[in-house]
């Protein structure tokens, strides 16, 4: 169990180092909380313009096959892939 003892000793040393220097640990929690709120999905207030709710007056069109074609940044990576990492 030498390995286990060595690991526990390292753990205890790590704990003691932080406990002896609480300022180090406390610093993290003092970050100012300005601007951290994430726009909630339930917020009706518009972030984009005058309409209160998303998609107002946006009529539904039946989905077209071409809309399922990915056209964003994923097209910049690796070409066609298969799950499991083999191509």
């Amino acid at each position: 169990m030498n390995k286990r003892h060595f690991l526990i000793a390292a753990a205890v040393a790590g704990i003691a180092a932080v406990a002896a220097n609480p300022a180090l640990a406390a610093k993290e929690g003092k970050e100012k909380c300005y601007g951290i709120s994430k726009a909630g999905a339930n917020d009706c207030a518009s972030t984009t313009g005058s309409h209160a709710c998303a998609g107002q007056s946006k009529a539904d069109n039946d989905p077209n096959e071409w809309k399922y074609v990915a056209s964003g940044t994923c097209t910049e990576m690796g070409g066609s892939l298969k799950p499991g990492g083999k191509n």
């Binding site: 994430k38 726009a39 909630g40 999905a41 709710c53 998303a54 998609g55 107002q56 007056s57 946006k58 009529a59 539904d60 990915a70 056209s71 964003g72 940044t73 994923c74």
Partner: peptide, 24 residues
């Protein structure tokens, strides 16, 4: 239907902005 779909898109896009950028 359009409003409902737009609300779904907004809610899911709020949770998955990187996926939205990846697929367009």
């Amino acid at each position: 239907r359009g409003n409902l779909a737009a609300n779904w898109g907004k809610a899911l896009g709020n949770a998955c902005p990187v996926l939205r950028t990846l697929v367009g």
